[in-house]
């Protein structure tokens, strides 16, 4: 349960807002609604919500613009809602500081998982020294990677990728974010590095690399490390 966390929904469609409110309130969130971006910014300042769900296709000021204004002064987690054919907007929003995204139509389960992840990352807490997902066990202090209880040897780059994903476990990371963090800002266009290294990494840590269960591909956006539970 969500201990009465406050969520602000910024969406102009009443049907979406209604179904979100009903479902989220059923899961213990306190829900506030607003229909346009300007008001959304205002309400964020007044209410100080714990999470924001922001629709990208708003009338007037669009979602991306709202997000940029918000990020000027607050780090409140923002989940973006978008439609399938706007990959570019999604990536732009993630690179502009959105915490995650969902493509309409989406299921409630997905939304709740995203909200949990976003909220967890928002809370300042000491980084866990170990990580477990399915058969994968990583001890970050010892640089130890175990698959099905057997140690696996990773190259420094593979390990750097895995560590980055663990730090943001459950959260989507865009291609650019990964490239910038691991290789450096001058490599943000070299997406083929990712294809090559993720293929290698999957071969080492996935049971079936053809159908990965731990490192998930977000088509056209980036990668996400699956968390158990």
């Amino acid at each position: 349960m969500s201990d009465g966390l406050q969520i602000l929904i910024v969406d102009d469609e009443i049907q979406i807002r209604r179904f979100l409110r009903i479902s989220l309130e059923a899961h213990g969130y306190r829900v506030y609604e607003t229909v346009d971006g300007q008001e959304g910014i205002l309400k964020t300042a007044q209410l100080r919500p714990d999470l924001i769900i922001l629709d990208m296709g708003l009338p007037g000021m669009d979602g991306l613009e709202v997000l940029k204004r918000l990020r000027e002064w607050t780090q409140t987690p923002v989940i973006i809602l978008s439609v399938r054919d706007s990959d570019r907007d999604k990536v732009a929003a993630l690179d502009a500081g959105a915490d995650d995204y969902l493509t309409k139509p989406f299921s409630m389960d997905e939304l709740l998982a995203r909200l949990r992840t976003a909220q967890r990352h928002a809370q300042p807490q000491p980084q866990a020294a170990t990580f477990t997902s399915g058969h994968l066990y990583v001890d970050l202090t010892r640089r130890l990677v175990m698959v099905k209880d057997a140690p696996v040897k990773l190259t420094p780059t593979e390990y750097a990728l895995l560590r980055l994903l663990i730090q943001h476990a459950g959260k989507v990371l865009t291609h650019q974010q990964i490239l910038r963090a691991v290789w450096g800002p001058e490599y943000v266009q070299e997406t083929h590095y990712l294809r090559v290294y993720f293929a290698q990494l999957r071969h080492k840590i996935e049971v079936n690399p053809a159908l990965p269960e731990i490192i998930l591909t977000e088509p056209g956006v980036g990668y996400r490390l699956k968390t158990t539970g």
């Binding site: 990959d87 570019r88 997406t191 083929h192 294809r195 090559v196 993720f198 293929a199 690399p209 053809a210 159908l211 990965p212 591909t217 088509p219 056209g220």
Partner: peptide
């Protein structure tokens, strides 16, 4: 088209999933 370097096995994996 948003052409990008892709690994076909990866695309197959996503489609199957």
């Amino acid at each position: 088209l948003k052409r990008d370097w892709c690994d076909v096995s990866e695309i197959i994996g996503v489609a199957v999933k």
